[in-house]
Design a protein around this nucleic acid. Structure first.
Lengths: 142, 142
DNA sequence: TCGGTATCGAGTATCGATGTCACCTCACCG
DNA sequence: CGGTGAGGTGACATCGATACTCGATACCGA
């Protein structure tokens, strides 16, 4: 446990409320699509929120660690972030052209992963499962 | 089609047989696990096959493009390569500690991905689905 | 209001990957 | 079998993403 916040308990305080963190968080709330740290940094500076690139990286990472945002990697290895509506485990259907994202459930995938891993004696599991394609709009424009 | 090879036809020849390509390919045949380009470069130099890092990257990429090796990205975004037994589309169960890999089929995943994407009007699909965990041995050692 | 401390951020280092370009070497030909 | 040129090679430069350093700054609790 690492975030007692709004309590007067002393203990392990972490994640202080700062203007920068608020700005990143607020921007993520406004965005629909997966964005890179660079994008977010640029956007914030554009609207006048002075913030350092380092801080953006750190903030996104801590938000990701806390499970407040989802991270995935583009084909080129760049990390992209998005605040997802669902806090539950879920997957994504992402447009590889415009970044539009749909959150999806995958019960079939969950059971498949678990069954396969068990068959081979693997433990401590995790998995990735994302679908990429062109959304309706981008298909039309293509 | 891009490899008419052993014919005297002129046409679009590509991928010439060189010592370096042979060395990379041979090493991949010997390896069981996913390895990074750096690993492969280091190993080749260690056994005395003089080869440049640039060439290793290029060779791996062309092998991957040709579908002769599988590529996936580690959590840190590094690309790792492996010659898979199956030429068919398949997924992987990978030990995140020792790299041991099992090739798996995922008919459930294929249909799931396709159905979901269709529901949302996406086209030109691709997907990723890998399972990570600790293999039996590593679970024991942990 | 004040002090201690977590956080910030400019600069810089690192790391994987790719671009550059002069030199090398296959593959094919005569 | 040796010449020739397009494709291949590799030392080096560069790039984009991310980690690190450390003095300056801004929270937060008292």
């Amino acid at each position: 446990m690492t975030r007692p916040q709004t309590q007067h308990g002393p203990a392990t305080r972490v994640m202080r409320a700062t203007r920068q963190r608020a700005a990143v968080s607020a921007l993520l709330d406004r965005l629909e699509d997966f964005r890179s740290a660079q994008d977010i940094h640029e956007e914030l500076r554009r609207v006048g929120d002075g913030i350092g690139l380092t801080t953006v990286y750190r903030t996104l990472q801590s938000l990701a660690d806390a499970g407040e945002v989802d991270v995935l990697r583009t084909g080129s290895g760049e990390a992209v972030y998005r605040r997802c509506a669902s806090a539950e485990h879920h997957h994504h259907l992402v447009c590889r052209r415009c970044g539009a994202t749909v959150e999806i459930e995958g019960p079939a995938v969950e059971t498949w992963a678990q069954r396969i891993a068990e068959q081979h004696g693997f433990s401590d599991l995790s998995h990735t499962a994302e679908i990429f394609g062109l959304c309706r709009e981008c298909s039309a424009t293509a």
